[in-house]
Design a protein around this nucleic acid. Structure first.
Lengths: 217, 217
DNA sequence: GACTATGGACAGTAGAGCTATCCGTACCGG
DNA sequence: CCGGTACGGATAGCTCTACTGTCCATAGTC
């Protein structure tokens, strides 16, 4: 198919498709003549992924390109590719330019919890810095209430990750698997956040007795 | 204190403070003369919250303003204020302009799970649309793997919310409580996402036997 | 052969989030 | 009370992101 059809079928404007091609998010089409090209279902698929990562996952164009590059690299271990999606989540706090008191305390706290659960994680995992940064921010803001929930979050996310990884193991095709994992990881953040809000509304209703303004349905 | 000290103590430039004042994120200082004002620890606190919500929580300036307005409104029920923070998370997918097949299927799926767990949530909760949007996106992208994890996410988030709400119940001061809840909710998303990444690395290591490139320490 | 579509290059745009400048007044040390 | 710095308020400007529009020469299409 040509670019017009790709645009119609994906709902993405031709101008934007050209932009994604320029920025390296979308591979070039197959040349049919020195200045003509044709695209296939792979391009359509990729385009839909791009929009999902940007619109739903909230990634920037650059972050999306990097994630997709990791997906495309067949030499990258599966969860290394996933790791590339790590640094791409919602705003990572400032890097440890000069670790202040809060940062140090936060790092110690995380390390203790991780050791306690026996997790094997690398310090290079951007998620590590991200977690420490959030913890440090919360400590700076006052009481360590969020910090006290860290154990809870780790316990529940361990179960979540266990099942997510298990679901991946029983697969064949590497390319499709990686795609699914990356999308699941990035979109999963948004889904989990939304589900958390729903759960909070339900629980607050039960525990605080506050009535919802409009029942669903 | 005057604006210079506020700037020094918060690490936010005077220009940015003026900007936040203009945009209504930060209340005006107390007038000491027709064109002079003084700020207190409340302003400093608020300023730190603003930076946390923007830098760590990833909220936009406008979203931050709205969340803070809800925090300041003493008539708003506690978890109604929290609900205001809902629409502010990472990128909500397109509103249901014209509910296509995927959207309808996603909505049905969510409704079934919610009914199954007996959650009481309102359709006005922006998190509802957000969840449906993510689910629909995943369905459009291909297999419904993420969708199959929905039950897992709901089960685990129910436990998380249960404990978060319980932690809030045992409090007194409304203003501080709301602040803590909002910060905990928004920053919690980032923390949970980071912890999920760490857990995924650990579990993938155990289940897939992929060695981390650099062990922590 | 007229007409539309295309690839490629590049300039332009809109919005977000600041940042800089200016002005007239206020505070502060000497 | 005088010079210098700080302040508040208003407005203009800047940087970055994510497109969008225009142009041109060539390709495909009826």
């Amino acid at each position: 198919m040509r670019v017009g059809e790709l645009s119609r079928r994906s709902g993405v404007s031709v101008a934007s498709i050209k932009y994604y091609l320029r920025e390296g998010l979308l591979p070039a089409g197959e040349r049919t003549s020195p200045n003509q090209a044709s695209y296939d279902d792979g391009h359509l698929r990729r385009l839909r992924m791009i929009r999902a990562l940007i619109d739903v996952g909230g990634l920037s164009v650059v972050a999306t390109r990097d994630v997709l590059a990791a997906v495309d690299d067949p030499d990258l271990p599966l969860f290394e590719a996933l790791g590339r999606a790590s640094g791409t989540t919602t705003a990572a706090p400032v890097p440890p330019e000069e670790p202040d008191e809060a940062w140090t305390a936060a790092a110690r706290m995380l390390a203790e919890h991780v050791d306690e659960r026996g997790w094997q994680v690398s310090a290079e995992n951007p998620a590590w810095h991200s977690a420490v940064g959030v913890l440090a921010t919360y400590l700076r803001l006052g009481d360590g209430d969020l910090a006290r929930q860290l154990g809870l979050y780790m316990r529940t996310m361990e179960e979540v990750a266990e099942r997510e990884v298990a679901a991946v193991v029983e697969r064949g095709d590497r390319a499709r698997t990686v795609e699914g994992v990356v999308v699941g990881t990035v979109l999963g953040d948004t889904l989990i956040a939304a589900v958390r809000r729903l759960a909070q509304q339900d629980r607050s209703l039960r525990l605080l007795g506050e009535a919802p303004t409009h029942p669903r349905g």
